[in-house]
Amino acid sequence: MEFVLEEGKHLSESCSNLILPALSIGNVGQLAVDLLVSSTGAETVGYLDDQFVLPCVGNDAYRPSPRGDLALPLQAYESSSSGLTLIQQRSPVVKGMMVEYAKNLADFAAASGNKHVVVLSALDFGRLQRIDMSSGPQIYYLSSTSVDGTDDYCEQLGWKRLQEYNPAQRGWKYLSSLAEGDVGDENNFTFEDDLEEEDYYPSLPFAALFSCFKARGLKVTCLLCYCSEGDNMADAFNLADAACKFLRLNPDNVRGDDGEKWIVPFSWMTVYGPPPDMSMF
């Protein structure tokens, strides 16, 4: 993976927290990163070029009057006022190469001096075992601070650890061995095999990122929410808000227009296309 700085830019040592999405159902992690980039006033500092990420190109996603800046598959942003580095991923990883991509990203984060990585992703609502909407949409987490994935601060925020995380289960063990580069003959299981129910979560992108960042010695926390495909903007607001709470971001540094908390990216205006022609009704 190659990191290319924009002309005249440099990575700030003060931006030690890294936020990035893991691609999943509804693209909620990417939408949440969009909100954070737009609302913290983060500036583009460069882009990452990785052979395992499919190419794509588009216009500036955040400004209503684009200056000709291109949006690329892996773009890095910094918000000095919030102490954040953000990476937006706009295209999928080549099939079967997720762990290799995660290793490359972990190497970049370690070399850049990032101390804490926050991964934002969604999970399939159809797999949620117990539904409790009494307190609104629930945030789940997975942390590298303890062997069982728990984190005291996340618990204080009222979040629940991902119940399906079991470091002794074969899928998680296999993923950990891949991340550490220590795959012995005893690990004859692969994610290309017929997966059992318990193998589903370790086969997802967020799990590969979690394992590789952890293996690299970085503190990593995954913030997760369950959702279904459709209009997932509300889920993105929820996940972005969780990231702000978790990192204790100053509300004055995350502010939208007209007193709103968030600045909605300009590109969201065309996410679902133009409204229907009402004359047909």
Rank of each mutant, 00 (worst) to 15 (best):
L84C: 06
Y153T: 13
F108E: 00
P73L: 08
F108A: 01
L128I: 04
Y141P: 01
L128Q: 14
Q88T: 11
S81A: 15
C154Y: 03
A106L: 09
A110E: 06
S146M: 07
V99Y: 00
Y140C: 05
D151A: 06
G126K: 09
L128K: 12
D152Y: 08
P92E: 10
Y62Q: 08
A122N: 06
I131G: 00
Y141A: 04
S134G: 02
Y62N: 03
D152N: 13
V147Y: 12
D132W: 00
S135G: 03
Q88A: 12
G113M: 01
P73G: 09
L123S: 01
Q89S: 10
A110Y: 04
V93I: 15
L123M: 14
K95F: 14
S121A: 15
D124T: 04
A71S: 15
I131L: 13
Y153V: 12
A111S: 14
Q156I: 03
C154M: 13
M133R: 08
Y141R: 05
Y141M: 10
V94P: 08
D152W: 09
V118R: 02
S82I: 02
L72S: 05
G68L: 03
S143C: 06
D151R: 03
N59V: 15
T145E: 10
Q138G: 02
V99T: 11
Q89F: 01
S144I: 10
G96W: 14
L70H: 07
K103V: 08
M98Q: 13
D148R: 09
I87W: 01
L128M: 14
D60K: 04
R90G: 07
L70Y: 10
I131A: 01
R130S: 10
